[in-house]
Each structure stands twice: as C-alpha cells, then as structure tokens.
Design a protein around this nucleic acid. Sequence first.
DNA 1: CTGAAAGCGCTTACAG
DNA 2: CTGAAAGCGCTTACAG
Lengths: 352, 352
Amino acid sequence: MVKSKIRIKDIAEQAGVSVGTVDRVLHNRGEVAEETKKKILDIAKANNYHPNLIARALTSKKQCIFATLMPSPTEEDIFWKRPLSGISDAATELEQFQVKIEKFFFDHYNEQDFIQQTKEILKLRPAGVVFPPIFKQESLDFIQKLEKQNIPYVFLESKIKDCNYLAYVGSDGYHSGRVAANVVDFSTPKNGDILIINLAKNLENIHHLNKRTQGFLSYFMDHGRNTGLKINIEIPTSNTALIKEKLNAVLSKNQNIKAIYITGSKVHKIAEYLIHNNLDEITLVGFDPIEQNIKYLKQGTINYLIGQHPYQQGFKAIKKLFDHVMLHNTISRDEILPVDIINRESIKLYFL
Amino acid sequence: MVKSKIRIKDIAEQAGVSVGTVDRVLHNRGEVAEETKKKILDIAKANNYHPNLIARALTSKKQCIFATLMPSPTEEDIFWKRPLSGISDAATELEQFQVKIEKFFFDHYNEQDFIQQTKEILKLRPAGVVFPPIFKQESLDFIQKLEKQNIPYVFLESKIKDCNYLAYVGSDGYHSGRVAANVVDFSTPKNGDILIINLAKNLENIHHLNKRTQGFLSYFMDHGRNTGLKINIEIPTSNTALIKEKLNAVLSKNQNIKAIYITGSKVHKIAEYLIHNNLDEITLVGFDPIEQNIKYLKQGTINYLIGQHPYQQGFKAIKKLFDHVMLHNTISRDEILPVDIINRESIKLYFL
DNA sequence: CTGAAAGCGCTTACAG
DNA sequence: CTGAAAGCGCTTACAG
C-alpha cells in the first residue's frame, strides 16, 4: 500500500497555481480554466493524491448526511433493533469526519408509510441511503429516483438484483439453509422425518425463504445422514388458530416427524404449538434471536436459532457508504456475512 | 451523552492564562505553578473537557507505540493468526491518530524466547502492551517490570488474576463448556455415555481447560437431557501412540460412549483416532477452528467446533489500550466475548 | 477565473 | 514559570 504524502500545497506548486485553485478542481466546484484543471488533475493522479481526512474533518463545516430507512422495531418484533444499533455505532465512529446519519422509519407492513418516508429522504438530498428492499415495487420506484439524483444506495438484509445498488450486506439464504440443515441433521435420529415450514404473512419475502429451503434440502443431497422424509409446507399466515389447524393435519398424517425447520423468524409460533401439544421432543430450528424466540430457546423447545449478524449488517452498510462517498475507495459489492448457530447456552453472552 | 465543546482556548480564557500553559498542565509537562495548575484542572473537569483528537492527530509529531507479544503462528498451529489480524486491523484504524503497533513474537513452547522478547519490549518503552500470559511465572516477571515503568498491559485469551492488568479480553471457560455441553447434549442419544478429555501437553493451561470441564458438567446438572455417564480423563501428551493406547483402554472398558468432548483445540488428534478405528459415529466436539480441526469438521468426523472470536480478541485488546492511554476513558476491565458454534456448513463463510 | 488570508483545535519550539 | 507565534493540511469566504 503506497501511502501518498503529497499535499494540496505540493500540487499547487507543481502546477504553478494556488491551493485555492487546486481545491476548486479537486471538489469540482468549477470556475477553473479547463487547461488548469486538467493539469492539476494529472498531477494529482500521477502522485496518487489522497486528501488528509483528518485535516478536512478539522476544518470542514459541512456535514455529509447519510439516510437510513428501516422498519421500526416494535414491541412484538424487535428484529430490527440490532441493525439499528450497528448503524448507530458506525455513526458514532464517523462523527469525527463530519458524517451524520439521519434515521427514517417505516411500518414493516405498510407500503404507504414506506413511500411517504422515501419522499422525506429525497427532500433531504442525502449523500447516500441504506435500506432493506422489503417492498419490491416501492423500492424500485425509490431506487429510480435515487439514481436520477445520483445518490448511491446500499441494501441490507435482502437485495434486488437488477439494479445499480452500490453494495449489499447480508447473509446468503442458501448458505443459511445448509447451516440449519447441518444442525438439524446432527440433532435428529437418522430415520426421523423432517418438516420444513415457510411461515410468513402473505408470503412476503418468499424468495428469500425459498432459498433457505433449497439450501436446506441441498445439504441432505450432499452429505446429510438423515434418511427420513423431507416434508415441505407453507403456512401463509401468522394466525395462531390457522397454524394449529395446519400443523394438526400434517403431524397426524405423519407420525414420524422428529424435527421441524422454520425458514424464518416466526419459529416461536411453532414452539408454542409444540408446548401446547406436548411435543417438545421434536427438534425445532429457526431463524433470528428475537425476544420471542429466545424465550423458547431458553426453555429448550427451540433447539437452535440461526443468527444473521444484524448488527454487523447495519454497521458495515454505513461503512461501505463512507468508504465510497468520502474515501472514494472501491468496495466489494456483495458482502455476505456468515451466520451464527445459537443455543440456549451461547445466547447468554450473545448480545454482549 | 454530553458532548463537550470546550476548547483549550476557552479554558485558557477562563483561567486567565495562555493556551500554552493549559497544554502544559493537561499533559503534565510540569513547569507550571501549582496554583495555576489546580485552577486549570478544575475548569477542565467542571466543563468535561476532552481533547479534539482530530486536531491533535493533525498536529502531533510524536507517535504513541503499543507493543504486542504473541506466539508466532506456525504451519502446524495457525491458531494465533486470527488475533493477529484483529490487531493489524485495529492498527490500521488507529494509524490516523498517530498510534503505531509493534508486534513481537515468541515460540509458543519456549519460555526463554518469551523472556528474550519481553526484554526487547521493555527497551522500546511502549505506551502499552498486549499479550496472552501463557507462561505464568515468566509473565509475572514481565508484569512486575511493566508496572515499575507504569506501562499498562492488556491480557488476551487467558488471564492471571492477581495482578494489576488494565483489561482482559477473552472467553469464559465455564461458559464455553456449557455451550459445548448443550451442543453435545442435542447431538447424542439420551442414554449414551459421554467422554470428556483434557488433552494438553504437560497439562499447560490446565486451569482454563478445567473450567471448560466444570462448565460442561454443570450444564448436565441444570437441564441436560442426556442421562448417560460422564467420564472424565486426562491425556497429558500429544503423542499419537500414547493417545491411542489411552483411548483404546477407555473405549473398550466402556462400549456405550456416544460422544467425546475435548476441552481444547487438539480435537483433530481424536478425530484421527476415530477414523482409524471406524468410530465416526461418535459425536465429537472440541475447540477452535484451526486448520487441522477444520479438515475433520468438513469430513464430518468433528461435529462441532467452538470458536472464541480470536479476531475480536486482538482487535478489542488494542482498542482498550487506545481508549485508556489516548482517550483516558474508563474501560470495562474484563471483557468476556461470546463463543461461536461452528459446523461443517457454517465454517465455509466463517473467515470472511 | 484566480490568489491571499484566516481559521479549525491542538502542539511545538522559542523567547522572556 | 508563562505567553506569543508558527504550523499541521485542508476549507472558506473575500477581493480582485
């Protein structure tokens, strides 16, 4: 790594102009003769000029603002708290460089709210945006406007493929599914059957959940030792009564189910069911250490939870934006984070 | 959080002196009348003065040097690579504040080498030291000299209790043992027996390993479902033949052993044994995703490895030093990191 | 279109 | 023991 020591002043001298002029071309503030501009740019490039951020931070009045648009964590679903605290910590770290984060929130189940917030963000004209593209169509509309204004955006948690996102930070559904499968495989009798459940209101996010199913199944193709059936069902609701009905049907039809794998975070719903029906013996694995799930993990009903480093997702998303916008570094576009396997013991220190 | 905006200049004005004088007392450079000093200190404290690090970094010529003393990673044992890369990353981040890290290395099995290196470090007179106190007596000697010179030191990986260490970053053996127990419990038939092995040359580190045994056993007291025997043995060697002999004896005496738990990172030795004796069915759990262990994890012989966030340990140890030495922040003294449960699938992205 | 100067908050000689 | 001044590398008006 070549650490350049060249300063604005040096460039100015070499170009035979003043530092003010150099600063103007470096920041594209115009008002500079085309010829001078070219000369300065050449010198800067030839010497691999990089601004001294420390000096800039000390002197610059103007803040660079990044906006985040995240679902509000609710009492019922605290899932979104963790990425937010990652975002906050990144904000603290970047404060010294005059970077500020404006946080916007929307109701997880309300497209209109999302749209409303995107309008607010566009008004703010931030230097970058971080958000999870939960609503595909609405996100695409937002993206279009961002691109028109040349505002870079970073995806979190999930991504939309066919667009010009600056970066994505999240986990890989397929991989997560395989990790879960491995855990289920080792905790279930060889000949026991395994039930896979896609449990999601309106099948939101269904694409992501499907990848978790595919990954799960692929594990058993490759080297799983379990030889039982893999039964795959969908429960497109979070209504307790309906879930019960569906499960009753499946479980009575197949008495040999020894493990249940939930592709999402609603695994606590199934835990409740198992307890009420005295089926605690069944191995239960799902996603995300949110409060409701942790409760059953600690009781032993849920055997494992797969964690997706939501904190890191928030933290890194902001850092990527900073790296790109402020440092003009080239960044890796897709950053796939590893997943965590969490049990009732490891959860005790998980949030420290 | 109160963000103080008071500057040296403000303090100077309030105290009726010049900034030079304020600077002198703030840095304890002497040559200031006792009375003035007190006045300045009072004002600083009353207004919660914190230096602007950006400004300081921009202006200060002098570097602050931290020394790290770590076992050299060898081809045979890459365990120490990870904390080192955490240290390197912290170094990069702190570079901008004129902090430099000097890395010293010693042979993991050579006390003399360790002693030699501590001498080099003392010669350097660093502003702080990070090291794992692997050799207890030699570490105590080193510590004594550090304290005489008022050099703060941070422990990593393990700690010595009765001394004035600034901070410790590592995992908790008892907790790790419980996490491992949970994993073994869920992967082993209820009535299978479990073999616990302390496998360590000369029983180095025996204290730490014992805590991992205690934690493991305590889990089964509290809520384990496994009802089999828990057989605890020690193998104070890493000689393959001797290990084999010992295992032959134990396993032939007890045919019902369904799981083996190794309290340290030498679990690959047991994996080899199991493979040679066609005992792959036995659940095998141990510590640390080092190369040799990963090999057997991927083959399926080792079911789980417990990871201790060595990268974070290195990173945080340096940060603690920085927080204390440069920022004069009060820091938490014992920072216990959570542990990771790693399986053959999750290992694929573990090092990303 | 361009340059000279002041300032960000701190540190560092230097003069007294 | 204390103060005045220059400087770190950049940005920001302001004057021309």
